[in-house]
Design a protein around this nucleic acid. Structure first.
Length: 655
DNA sequence: GTAGGGTTAG
């Protein structure tokens, strides 16, 4: 029986062999042409035709799954492989590890990797890159050590993985170590390695080293990616002009910009003043034919929104036929960023209606929009939406919600969330400190700050800004100085314009005008309108004509068209009975064609946002509102006189 | 004919 069936089996095997080659080449072609679904379909048809896949089939199919990055398909293919005779093939198993890594199932990837009998450098690299992508820094280090212990020599891919890992944690010291190690094992000539080093150094803020690596790439080996790494590095650090310079050199060197070049340059235009530059890059994108790529359009939508031209953003959005979650989020973010929550929510429901699932970033931008307009009711709704979609396990979402609650005046809810969240980062603490400062809980803000320091967390420049703001608003002069000096001496943080501004404001409010002026005149960075403005306001409170005049003149020099300094100075003159000065300010305003636009505030009533300005009498119940307001300010003055004994809080702060 | 890798968006 055995002998009679043998020729038949052999015959079937050989026919399977030639057929399977045919299927393999078709599947390979589909994968290489970036049609992963077609590849999987071919695989299914192959099985339906009772053709057994071989050790060449599976790596192709696994690659298709990796491209789809859907754990559902990955698991299905893995089951097929386990049942096949090739489950222990090193090539096949390594692709399975990679497939799970790309489907973000790092647990499955590790299980397969761990059970492999045979592993070469490629298998280790696949796993290492997986940990890098997940941001598991400790696992990366652990795996790298282990690989050395079992005698696997790292190669250029290993170095790239390690480089990315340390650049994500912005560890310049370790980056230099890996750079040296790479030179030692001889992979520095690999242009891909050099490219990762360039962007890693840029991410760590060491542009000198980034340029050195760039210059060190052998002439003729430089690729568009090398240029993009340099341009992207500068662009990500908001150094638009350095990025643009490299862009010019790149063109001069005969390279044409690609999608990545355009995206990097566009994403560094985020202020209304940068709209012109953004448009310039847009025109370049059209010239090089990149303007139809979805990532470019998404970035354009975001660029136009951030630069204040939401209509252009919407025009692009409406003209698209393939919108991804990023597209919707960019547009929603555009509306949220300017406080147009009606439009943002309209798009949010439209997005859900077309079946596009909002993700973390979508929700984050809606939350921040609520904070901008002080829309507590809406904020609460998004809070519960985040909760029911499992997003409240995410630190960033919790931080945004804390910020939103604090900005809407609901400090209790902010505190509650802060104490129940499972993991608090420096950002969480900073947000809470700032929230307390904003809501007048100055002591609480300082207590929180000390608590975080005691817990061993390292406050950053934003934390110190929040603490200084608390001190300024509370009028805690000594505490303010203490924090300012601690920041410099203990934490080696260079104070920025905002920190100087806070200190100047604090000194001014406390009536130490001479000291404030001295402080501003001796600061190492050029004082801006904010600093001179707060000094001028302090002069108004303390009726100091002389220093007021000095500050006002600095402001006139910086921007002669700004109305506030003329008005403030006129008030200072008026309170000193200097009517000549008042008249002079009026004529200067006229001469410089200065017009005063009143500032606006927003308040949410019954879910609807209302805008109002100083002396706004437009509301139908205006009279009633102002009566209530008088009543409230009378009450607060009464309260103030009772709490005069509170340390450090002056009468002026309570006006 | 089979595996891991460089820049980039909300």
């Amino acid at each position: 029986m055995v002998t009679s069936s043998l020729p038949l089996r052999l015959n079937r095997l050989s026919s399977n062999c030639s057929t399977v080659n045919l299927w393999n080449s078709q599947i390979r072609e589909a994968v290489n042409k970036n049609h992963p679904r077609k590849a999987l379909l071919l695989f299914r048809q192959m099985k339906q035709n009772a053709i057994e896949p071989d050790n060449f089939t599976f790596p192709f199919v696994a690659k298709a799954c990796a491209k789809l990055s859907d754990p559902k398909y990955s698991q299905m293919i893995h089951t097929h492989i386990v049942k096949s005779p090739f489950f222990a093939d090193i090539f096949v198993e390594t692709t399975v590890v990679d497939m799970y890594v790309k489907s973000r199932r790092i647990d499955c990837a590790y299980r397969v990797f761990d059970e492999m009998r045979d592993r070469d450098v490629t298998s280790w690299n696949a796993m290492l890159v997986g940990f890098v992508q997940m941001g598991f820094f400790d696992r990366v280090c652990g795996l790298f050590c282990e690989m050395g212990l079992v005698g696997i020599r790292p190669d250029s891919v290993t170095i790239m993985g390690l480089t990315q890992a340390v650049s994500n944690s912005k560890n310049l010291y370790m980056l230099k170590g890996i750079h040296l190690f790479g030179i030692k094992i001889g992979v520095y000539g690999d242009v891909s390695v050099a490219n990762t080093w360039i962007s890693a150094y840029a991410k760590c803020g060491d542009f000198g080293s980034a340029e050195l690596v760039f210059d060190g790439i052998e002439e003729g080996l430089r690729t568009i990616v090398s240029w993009n790494s340099m341009i992207g590095g500068y662009a990500n650090d908001d150094k638009f002009f350095n990025a643009l310079n490299f862009y010019k050199y790149m063109i001069g060197d005969g390279f044409r910009p690609d999608v990545s070049t355009i995206v990097s340059l566009l994403s560094s235009c985020k202020q209304p003043e940068e709209l012109f530059q953004g448009k310039l890059i847009h025109s370049h994108a059209i010239q090089c034919g990149c303007d139809l790529a979805i990532s470019v359009i998404n970035t354009l939508i975001s660029m136009y929104s951030k630069c204040g031209d939401v209509d252009s953003a919407r025009f692009l959005f409406d003209g698209m036929h393939d919108r991804t979650c990023v597209t919707w989020t960019a547009m929603i973010g555009g509306y949220s960023g300017k406080g147009d929550m009606d439009a943002a929510l309209g798009l949010f429901s439209a997005m859900e209606a077309v079946g596009e699932k909002p993700d973390l970033v979508t929700v984050l931008s809606l939350i921040s929009g609520c904070g901008i307009i002080g829309g507590l009711e809406l904020g609460k709704w998004i809070d519960s939406y985040a909760g029911s979609n499992g997003l409240k396990n995410n630190v960033m979402v919790c931080n945004a919600l804390i910020d939103m609650h604090a900005k809407c005046g609901s400090i209790g809810a902010a505190q509650e969330l802060f104490y129940v969240m499972s993991k608090r980062t420096v950002v969480s603490w900073t947000t809470m400190v700032a929230g307390c400062a904003l809501n007048g809980e100055f002591r609480e803000a300082l207590d929180l700050f000390h608590e975080m320091v005691e817990l061993g967390l390292r406050p950053n420049h934003i934390t110190f800004l929040a603490v200084l703001q608390a001190c300024t608003h509370a009028g805690f002069l000594e505490k303010g100085w203490e924090c300012f000096n601690t920041m410099i001496d203990v934490y080696n943080i260079n104070p920025g314009l905002d920190h100087y501004s806070c200190m100047a404001d604090l000194l001014g409010r406390k009536g130490k005008l001479k000291e404030a002026l001295d402080f501003v005149q001796n600061m190492p960075i050029k004082p801006d309108v904010g600093i001179w403005g707060s000094l001028l306001s302090a002069c108004k409170i303390h009726r100091d004509v002389e220093i007021g005049e000095y500050a006002a003149h600095r402001l006139f020099e910086l921007d002669p068209h700004m109305a506030a300094p003329y008005v403030e100075m006129a008030n200072i003159y008026a309170s000193a009975g200097r009517w000549d000065g008042v008249a002079k300010m009026r004529s200067m305003m006229k001469c410089n064609k200065v017009r005063k636009f009143p500032g606006q505030s927003h308040v949410e009533v019954n879910g609807k946002t209302r805008t109002f300005t100083v002396e706004d009498r437009d509301h139908p119940e205006g009279i009633l509102i102002y009566e209530l307001l008088d009543c409230l300010s009378f009450q607060s003055k009464e309260d103030a006189s009772h709490s005069q004994h509170l340390e450090g809080i002056s009468d002026h702060d309570l006006r």
